[in-house]
Design a protein around this nucleic acid. Structure first.
Length: 589
RNA sequence: GCGCCCGUAGCUCAACGGAUAGAGUACUUGGCUUCGAACCAAGGGGUUGUAGGUUCGAAUCCUGCCGGGCGCACCA
């Protein structure tokens, strides 16, 4: 519908001689302003240097089949003086009005809303417009390091990456999920050294132990690093292999809990030599400086970075080039996205520029999606100090809180459900705000699992499922049937003469009219790589559902059939929305 | 020093240059004999860091200042 309006308005603007006005069609923040709204008249008025309301009236005329305007309504406060056109050509639009400084507001007919809801309840959401339809996209995210613990930053990257992968899939792209892991470097030596000292410790702990004592045992650990690299000691080799395998296996359990299934795994050990070769083969891109091989980024407005150090070893930068090549071998991707922290941003730009010079066909295809830190309000965390809160420990704490809350309920699988709630709580916190900014996460508060939270969404859906079950047992058949939604019929829709915008909007109408915007929200989230639009929308929707639930019963209510249909539509949208966020949707909790 | 990002209610966050800047939380009050109260309803709470500028219209765009974060050569 939004698209249809957009096209109709564009056409009308062309007729007015303003073909290139950058207008928008949006969902008004306030429902009394209709289901869709456009600022087209305001924009066009600027270009034509005319009064916006005059332009609005001309547009309204063109959008209506009749050129007869109703008389100005006097019931409203005069600053909202409206003109209502009685006859509309756009199908499904019951009213077009001009309001405020020159907004044109569109109201859907009750029939149009009901028909949309029927589709949604049946799982039809309409098409999402995207340039990426049918294209292959690779999303790299999570990137933990074997031998180290899975910390909160990894949780954050995983959450965002997983959601972006889902959004691309919703937009019609074929997505490959990739994970790039550092299985070589000093951190490995620290962990193995720690393990040698304390064989009974877990790998994450061994790393922390080794890391804390690194300064005091620097030579020893560096020597060990060399042994690992050159593979000269069988016992160390065995330790390395075992540690790597155990770490990866452990991560795999976390991925399963988080709902991620990777298609490709890349390792530093594998791409390092490749990157080194690439640098050597491209003297036109890289140059020697102070014994190292560098890329001078200054000529592109960037800075210089070292790709091969003075010992002839590839740095992280060169490895990244190797990674680019490894990714290329997996297929021809229209887009390759790396989800990572803000601090990597400038570094990423330099490496990307170098990569584009080496692989000209990749120009413009590599995108970074950056995020801030996840900070805890209670205490600091650090993967180098022992008392750190890791991603895993945070999940476990939340899981325990969920379990406590579920005591007294008879559930099929308490462990799994508690896990789903924990994952939902943390993912919601990450996905509820826009990109780039640090996230302040209060574990204490989120343990309460209330309000603006993942469990709020999960619970609302569980409630809907419960209603659907009860309705089925009572023999209610979903459908709009013969019933009229009494509120909708007498309220805002259809008959302008009886519309009364001063009275509070009814909960049922709010729910209906919120439901129909899901696809547009997803489209925008996918286009901007911003999952938080979905999060915000779902919260608003769940709130509308809960409010409606309080005032109208389904089983034994006045309109059981349409109420059940509405509930099914809500459940359908919420289930799909949660999937897009990568938040699990338990059947009971 | 140079570059990038941020500053909105006590706290955590929304607001695609537009309409009366919205949610949650905390606080106060009311609501479970009826489909799940992890819920709902109501109330107070704002000079959008600050001073200017552009615009019919600015939290949003531009400039200065204040405050905070991150990055700038052989770590990842």
């Amino acid at each position: 519908m939004r698209e249809a309006l957009y096209i109709a308005i564009q056409k009308a603007l062309v007729e007015l001689g303003v073909p290139d006005a950058p207008f928008v069609v949006e969902r008004p923040g306030d429902m009394s302003h209709g289901d869709y709204s456009t600022n087209a008249a305001l924009i066009a008025a600027k270009q034509l240097e005319k009064n916006p309301r005059e332009i609005a009236e001309m547009l309204q005329e063109k959008l209506s089949s009749e050129k007869v305007l109703g008389s100005p309504r006097s019931a409203r406060p005069d600053h909202f003086l409206q003109k209502v056109s009685p006859s509309i050509s756009l199908e499904g639009i019951s009213k077009i009005e001009i309001a405020g400084p020159g907004f044109i507001n569109f109201f859907l007919s009750h029939e149009a809303v009901a028909s949309e809801i029927e589709k949604i309840a049946g799982g039809e959401f309409g098409e999402i417009k995207s340039d990426l339809k049918g294209q292959k996209v690779m999303v790299e995210y999570t990137d933990p390091n074997p031998f180290k613990e899975f910390h909160i930053g990894h949780l954050m990257t995983n959450t965002i990456g997983e959601s972006i992968a889902h959004l691309f899939e919703a937009a019609g792209a074929t997505v490959a999920r990739a994970n790039y892991q550092g299985d070589v470097g000093v951190h490995v030596a620290k962990a193995i050294w720690g393990k040698q000292q304390k064989p009974e410790s877990l790998w994450g702990e061994a790393y922390v132990f080794g890391s804390e004592r690194y300064d005091a045992h620097k030579e020893e650990v560096d020597e060990l690093n060399k042994i690992i690299y050159e593979k000269t000691d069988a016992a160390v080799n065995a330790l390395y292999e075992a540690g790597r395998a155990q770490s990866l296996e452990h991560f795999e359990k976390l991925y399963a809990m988080l709902g991620t299934k990777f298609d490709y795994y890349f390792f530093e050990s594998q791409v390092g030599p490749v990157g080194l070769e690439i640098v050597k083969k491209h003297p036109e891109v890289f140059e020697e400086s102070e014994g190292a091989v560098v890329f001078k980024g200054e000529q592109y407005g960037l800075h210089t970075r070292v790709f091969v150090n003075s010992k002839g070893l590839p740095t992280y930068e060169a490895k990244e080039l190797g990674l680019v090549e490894a990714k290329k071998e997996k297929g021809d991707f229209a887009l390759s996205i790396t989800v990572t922290a803000n601090e990597i941003q400038d570094y990423f730009k330099v490496v990307r520029k170098a990569a584009e010079l080496v692989f000209p066909d990749l120009e413009g295809k590599m995108i970074g999606r950056f995020h801030g830190f996840l900070k805890l309000t209670t205490g600091k965390m650090s993967s180098r100090k022992g008392n750190a809160i890791t991603g895993e420990s945070l999940l476990m704490d939340l899981k325990d809180a969920a379990k406590e809350k579920m005591q007294g309920r008879e559930l099929k699988d308490v462990e799994k459900t508690a896990e789903q709630i924990a994952v939902g709580a943390i993912k919601y916190a990450v996905l509820k705000q826009g990109s780039g900014k640090d996230i302040i996460f209060d574990p204490e508060k989120s343990l309460s699992l209330q309000g603006d939270s993942g469990p709020y969404l999960q619970y609302a859906r569980v409630r809907a499922l419960s209603i659907m079950k009860a309705a089925k047992e009572a023999g209610v058949i979903a459908g709009s049937g013969e019933e009229k939604s009494p509120v909708s019929a007498a309220g805002w829709s259809g008959n302008a003469a009886t519309s009364d915008f001063s009275s509070p909007i009814n909960p049922r109408v709010t729910l209906e009219r919120t439901l129909i915007h899901f696809t547009e929200v997803v489209e925008r989230a996918a286009a901007e790589l911003e999952p938080h639009y979905v999060t915000t929308y779902l919260t608003e929707l769940a709130s509308a559902f809960n409010s409606w639930y309080m005032v109208e019963r389904v089983v034994g209510g006045p309109n059981p059939q349409s109420a059940l249909l509405l509930t099914e539509a809500f459940e359908s949208v919420l289930k799909n929305g949660l999937t897009l966020l990568g938040i699990p949707a338990p059947e009971e909790m």
